[in-house]
């Protein structure tokens, strides 16, 4: 008998946890926050992979311009995108 009671309690807890968010209704619904992330300068050279200091504008190893990168997916950016072409993240400071 005891195992059945314990099982019913467990099942009851499960059902409560599943139903509670639905019962709470739309009053608790929050809009999903919009993604807007700052641009960051490159951590690494896109050509040779060398680690770059934040103030280095060109890679000291191979001379490639230190480009911008999407903070979300790390994709190299040209600098004029409003959204990252890789992942669609909205980029701040876009013109």
């Amino acid at each position: 008998m005891l195992p059945i009671i314990i099982f019913l309690l467990m099942a009851g807890l499960t059902v409560f946890m599943l139903v509670y968010p639905l019962w709470q209704g739309s009053s608790a619904a929050r809009p999903l926050p919009a993604a807007a992330a700052p641009r960051v300068s490159a951590g690494k050279c896109v050509t040779c992979g060398r680690a770059l200091e934040p103030d280095e504008r060109f890679c000291p190893q191979c001379g490639t311009p230190a480009g911008l990168r999407c903070p979300q997916c790390g994709r190299a950016l040209a600098g004029d995108e409003r959204f990252c072409p890789g992942c669609g993240t909205k980029l701040e400071g876009s013109r």
Binding site: M10, T14, M17, L18, Y20, P21, L22, Q24, A28
Partner: peptide
């Protein structure tokens, strides 16, 4: 339907718990 997603998350948690 965000409430359903929250309910699903609870289901996910309960599965891990059990």
């Amino acid at each position: 339907y965000p409430e359903l997603i929250r309910s699903a998350e609870n289901g996910f948690r309960m599965a891990a718990l059990w």
